[in-house]
């Protein structure tokens, strides 16, 4: 099984984000890390390879700094990596990013393409879906489980309210992976050491004919939401209040 995993470099989860002067993006002087759902996608790909053999290729679209997420992927066990590089790569929308990926892998054959469910910066959740469309192959989203099945794979999708859906897909296919599908591994010292000698190919975005001018959407305004505080008292016997609280946390606030 040959698996491509698309990983994106995003601002670190706890980075103190400040809107940049142009009002369309953030100040770039923050720390970056691998988009969390993509880390789960990579882990799933490595597990599939360990179970069924094959190759795992990590790919990112991003400026020079984004090579870091590929080095981490290689250290965790990816066999090789492709960096689709461009200074303005972080300004691509989902469509243009998918276009870049599709063009970068033209001539390669992958059985499965994994992406994270969505990115933690823009959060569109579209790149994987658009990529499948551009490649003319099947896709399924919010994947919680991947198993081999006759003629393809059987996947478990997460639906609302604790429901799941099982689907069979032919290969090749794009799967967008949900966080928590597995338990992330750490890179070992040996892994970090070996990563140095693994191939990391760089493809210039410009050479693929992709730039933000392909974007189908543009950011009109970026702003920090005004914080509001709302206090509500739940009253009654402790047992009822606890049940109410749990229901509110689950259904309204959706934090549990």
């Amino acid at each position: 099984m040959r698996i491509l995993v698309c990983v994106k470099q995003v601002p670190a989860k706890d980075a103190p984000i400040k809107v940049a002067g142009d009002g369309a993006w953030i100040r770039e002087d923050v720390a970056y890390e691998t988009n969390e759902p993509d880390a789960y996608a990579l882990e799933e790909a490595l597990r599939q390879r360990e179970a069924h053999g094959g190759e795992v290729v990590a790919l990112t679209v991003g400026p020079a700094r984004a090579a870091q997420v590929l080095r981490e992927a290689l250290a965790k066990g990816a066999d090789r990596a492709i960096h689709v590089a461009g200074d303005d790569a972080h300004r691509l929308d989902s469509y243009a990013a998918a276009e870049a990926i599709a063009r970068a892998i033209a001539g390669e054959k992958f059985d499965l393409i994994f992406t994270g469910l969505q990115s933690e910066d823009y959060g569109y959740g579209q790149t994987g879906v658009v990529l499948a469309e551009l490649l003319g192959i099947a896709h399924a989203t919010i994947i919680m489980q991947v198993q081999p099945a006759a003629g393809g794979v059987r996947v478990k999708r997460e639906l609302e309210n604790g429901y799941f859906q099982y689907l069979n897909l032919p290969l090749p296919a794009v799967l967008t992976i949900q966080s928590g599908i597995n338990k992330l591994r750490y890179a070992t010292l040996m892994g970090i050491k070996q990563a140095k000698s693994k191939p990391l190919a760089t493809v210039a975005l410009a050479d693929l004919g992709v730039s933000p001018s392909l974007n189908r959407q543009s950011v009109a305004k970026l702003y920090v939401p005004v914080k509001t505080k709302k206090t509500e008292l739940l009253e009654g016997p402790a047992k009822e209040v606890a049940a109410q609280l749990a229901a509110r946390l689950k259904n309204d606030l959706r934090v549990i």
Binding site: K183, L184, R185, Y186, T188, L189
Partner: peptide
Amino acid sequence: RTDDKGVDRRGERKANFEPGYDL
């Protein structure tokens, strides 16, 4: 000895435990 990874707050191993290396 490098740090152990994947140890929980009580010192128990988590599923992704990776022992530190002796260099």
